[in-house]
Nucleic acid binder design. Structure first.
Lengths: 148, 148
DNA sequence: CCTAACTATTAGGCTTCCTAAGTATGAACG
DNA sequence: CGTTCATACTTAGGAAGCCTAATAGTTAGG
């Protein structure tokens, strides 16, 4: 019985990785399920915190097209969690800024989500947590390369 | 300066883990973007391969409610990739079975996706791939606990 | 100036998810 | 048997999120 060729090992890892991706979506859906802010909305608000962000920047961060970001922003604006202002440097652009309510909503939602995940992580043993911890930067790297 | 309390370390890990989840969605969206079958549709078809599956089982696997699964199934049926039959053991139930075209579509889509991911994994060094590899079973465990 | 590039919004459409309500079958019990 | 309750699925209606194409306004470069 021959050793597996390197290429096959990569494909196998890819297969397992895809499963993990699928599961991530699942977990995230559960996390979003009964939250007042979706994961994406939380991301928008976070960008709107310090000095705000432009619509295009938010779209890029979310990984969606500009009109989709506009939609989310309008929704959050109607909810009173952020406001839109003309950018002083470039009148074509719009700066998106969190309101005090928005800031409070981020704090609350962030805390709740972290506690929820932490409770799950607490059921793991230390080796398992270390494995996750070691993999996270690699996830980040993969994501960056996909975004590029 | 005190060492961090264990609970804080967990919260920090949770925060990073959430980021990774968010990134996973991003990667998966890219993967789905120009594919003829979405990730979810591919999952449905895979369950329909050997002996088929019932609608409720498919819904559970996808992590959605039954009507949402029905919708996907109908779409795939219209595309000729699967068919529905009455379950011989229980006439209330419906068995979902892949057609030959469905089987071929799974093979093709699976191969394409694996190759796509493998190409990304190929840009990592061995330590990074090992880190991913070690984390995958833990992902699986987390997912199972969330599903339960 | 005038044209080309950029930023954001609007309009229209598709997919996917949900809840609620309806149909049909199965199972339990008197 | 027949009533009743539970189970399996479908249908209907609606919300959220994403997209492309078209539009309006602003900036920047010949």
């Amino acid at each position: 019985m021959n050793a597996e060729r390197p290429a096959d090992a990569l494909i196998d890892l890819a297969q397992e990785f895809r499963n993990a991706l699928r599961q991530s979506v699942f977990v995230l859906r559960r996390l979003d399920a009964h939250a007042e802010l979706s994961s994406a909305q939380l991301s928008v608000l976070k960008m709107a915190l310090d000095g705000g962000a432009r619509v295009g920047e938010i779209a890029r961060d979310l990984g969606v097209k500009v009109p989709s970001a506009t939609e989310q922003i309008i929704r959050l604006e109607r909810a009173g969690l952020l406001r839109r202002e003309a950018d002083p440097d470039d009148s074509r652009a719009v700066r998106v800024l969190a309101t005090a309510e928005g800031r409070a909503a981020v704090d609350l939602a962030d805390r709740r989500r972290n506690e929820h995940i932490a409770a799950i992580l607490a059921t793991l043993d230390q080796n398992e947590r270390d494995a996750i911890s070691a993999a996270l930067p690699v996830f980040h790297k993969i994501n960056s390369s996909v975004r590029a």
